[in-house]
């Protein structure tokens, strides 16, 4: 078995002829002339500014997204509350405003527990208010 001791230790790497001759003068000359100093590329010069611009854009986008999320959450809550209330009112108009006859039929329909419930229409005063409202609605509709 061969070991490292069995192999002659020598430098097999060669250099071009005269490579080390006057290297010190050449290095100094090149450093002084700026030849050895790499000039930064335009990208390297503008890199910090590009990063800064990208950071500002990201920050602005981040803030906008965060604000949108919180605003949306608030408006969703408000809308859901309004929807709870406005469902009956809007549906009343859309479902019952075909004509007056349909409206009265609907109101007189005993199976319609929803409208018959005392919570919504429990006396004549409410009924009159509803009729007035529908009359006003029709008037506006016709004027359009």
């Amino acid at each position: 078995m061969k070991t490292l001791k069995d192999i002659e230790k020598k430098n097999n790497f060669k250099v071009p002829e005269d490579y080390f001759d006057n290297m010190e003068k050449e290095v100094i000359k090149k450093i002084k002339s700026g030849e050895l100093i790499k000039k930064p590329s335009p990208f390297q010069v503008f890199k910090p500014y590009l990063y800064m611009a990208a950071s500002v854009i990201l920050l602005a986008y981040g803030i906008k997204t965060v604000l949108n999320i919180s605003v949306n959450k608030k408006s969703e809550t408000i809308i859901s509350k309004i929807e709870d209330f406005s469902y009956t009112f809007d549906d009343m108009i859309s479902e019952l405003s075909y004509d007056e006859l349909a409206f009265y039929e609907y109101l007189n329909d005993e199976d319609n527990n929803y409208w018959a419930s005392e919570e919504l229409i429990n006396d004549d005063e409410d009924l009159i208010y509803l009729e007035d409202y529908l009359a006003q609605y029709y008037l506006e509709y016709e004027l359009e």
């Binding site: 080390f20 290297m23 010190e24 003068k25 290095v27 100094i28």
Partner: peptide, 10 residues
Amino acid sequence: FEILVKTYSK
């Protein structure tokens, strides 16, 4: 610096 380069380059 020249002496430094000459001494250590190799």
